[in-house]
Write a protein that binds this DNA or RNA. Structure first.
Length: 395
RNA sequence: GCGUCGGUGGUAGAGUGGUCAAUUACAACAGACUGUAAAUCUGUCGCCUCCGGGCUACGAAGGUUCAAAUCCUUCCCGACGCACCA
């Protein structure tokens, strides 16, 4: 059995870095100092096939606890994902089938293993909540539902807002927090970690654990990575960085972050100690450093360096990037049709508009393509808009 | 079940017989400016087009009309009220 680390300095760091709130901080700190091995979990609903920045933040926190020697669990909400979390959704989320859900989380373990160790000493566990939730009888559900009142549920911000706007709240949505809460009971959890948007659901678990198991479950809520308009960096909003992005893509996405996100990015997405954070005198350099550090975590130092060089060449010096998507065509094909056919663009109309807007650029001749019916006669290197580069090779 | 109101493009939300592919805002995309930022300004923002126009769309299906997102009928869905004392 591995020993649990109780270094107070380290614990203080873990309880502060990137943390929004802890319920309840003192008792949690005491638990950690006691030397007892604790069970800590993070739940993820597999609503999409890849993990992204929003998941990384709590996963990194989980990792820190694993390093202290505690038992950490990555729980896949394969059952809860089918219900749909009403959090932060003004409309009811579309329910997924179990098949879709399982398909989504196929690669989660692999992706998460960038951070968590799933083997060796004190391996992280990977669990599915359908294991207990799918087996519950109506009786069990009723028993669970009896622990809360409708009023407690309705007080929730989300539901209040929906009521004000005369939008529906469906019965099953009430069960979501209960189910998530029950996960803590089923696994006999000591600590749950999640984004601060999960506060309500996690506190539900705290109540249920205290009612049913008669013990104190701590809840750690993490800050969210938000841009200055208050929008989450998340899958649903479309501005996410995915685990599967290659180094160049990831680097570029980070560089296009708003300045206001830089320090938050360091705090939430890197392990760097605060004294190494760059000063913000030159935001661009600070952002380069951030992009480098983040890409390093996913792709290693070498790739991160290459990505940085690639980025600098491409955008600062306006050179052509080394790597880009390639499309093979037959001589004489019409460019418009090729691009639509290969799904680079969604319609011919879009192509026409881009051409009219001088957005399609031939990098070899260094001129914009003006002819809508441009035919591909020789190899081409195209830039569409600012970010899209494309090689067209003639067979 | 009864009654009232409502269901419009990625979102919010106008429009209530022709001038509607549908005002506007946000998001998105592109151009200028830059640090591939942000902010700002400009343009685009259903699909196809020989740029004349054609096609498909305003919950669903029918109908009225020369003409329907708009009127009528039926159905589906939602909010609210009533269905107990008041």
């Amino acid at each position: 059995m591995s020993k649990v680390i109780t270094d107070e300095k380290r614990i203080d760091f873990i309880l502060n870095r990137g943390v929004e709130n802890i319920f309840v901080k003192e008792s949690l700190k005491n638990k950690l100092l006691s030397g007892k091995k604790l069970k800590i979990y993070l739940g993820i609903d597999p609503t999409g096939p890849t993990l992204h920045m929003g998941h990384v933040i709590p996963i990194m926190k989980l990792k820190q606890f694993q390093e202290l020697g505690h038992e950490v669990i990555l729980l896949i909400g394969d059952f809860t994902a089918m219900i749909g979390d009403p959090t932060d959704k003004m409309a009811t989320r579309i329910q997924l089938t179990h098949k879709e859900v399982l398909n989504n989380c196929k690669n989660y373990k692999k992706q998460a293993s960038k951070f968590l160790k799933f083997n060796g000493n004190n391996p992280a566990k990977f669990k599915f909540n359908s294991k207990w939730l799918a087996k519950m009888k109506f009786e069990d559900v009723l028993n669970l539902a009896s622990k809360i009142t409708v009023d407690q549920m309705l007080k929730r911000d989300m539901f209040v807002r929906r009521q004000e706007e005369n939008k529906p709240i469906f019965g099953h949505e009430f069960f979501y927090p209960l189910m998530q809460g029950y996960d803590s009971v089923a696994m006999d959890i000591d600590i749950e970690i999640g984004g601060n948007d999960q506060t309500f659901n996690m506190l539900m678990g705290r109540n249920l654990v205290s009612e049913i198991l008669k013990k104190d479950k701590s809840v750690i809520t993490m800050k969210l990575l938000e841009d200055n308009t208050g929008k989450k960096m998340g899958k649903t909003e479309g501005n996410m960085i995915s685990f599967l992005d290659n180094a160049n893509e990831m680097f570029g996405k980070i560089m296009s972050w708003n300045d206001g996100l830089i320090l938050k990015g360091f705090e939430l997405c890197t392990d760097l100690e605060e004294k190494y954070f760059p000063n913000m005198q030159n935001p661009r350099d600070a952002k380069l450093k951030l992009a480098f550090e983040i890409v390093k975590i996913y792709h290693g130092e070498k790739k991160a360096q290459e990505a940085q060089i690639n980025w600098e060449n491409t955008f600062s010096k306006k050179e052509i990037p080394d790597e880009m998507e390639e499309i093979k065509v037959n001589a004489g094909e019409i460019l418009m049709e090729v691009l639509v056919d290969k799904k680079v663009l969604s319609s011919k109309g879009e192509y026409r508009r881009l051409v009219e807007g001088n957005a399609v650029h031939d990098l070899e001749k260094n001129e914009n393509i003006k002819d809508v019916n441009f035919k591909v006669l020789e190899n081409l290197t195209l830039k569409i808009g600012k970010k899209r580069f494309l090689k067209i090779n003639v067979n």
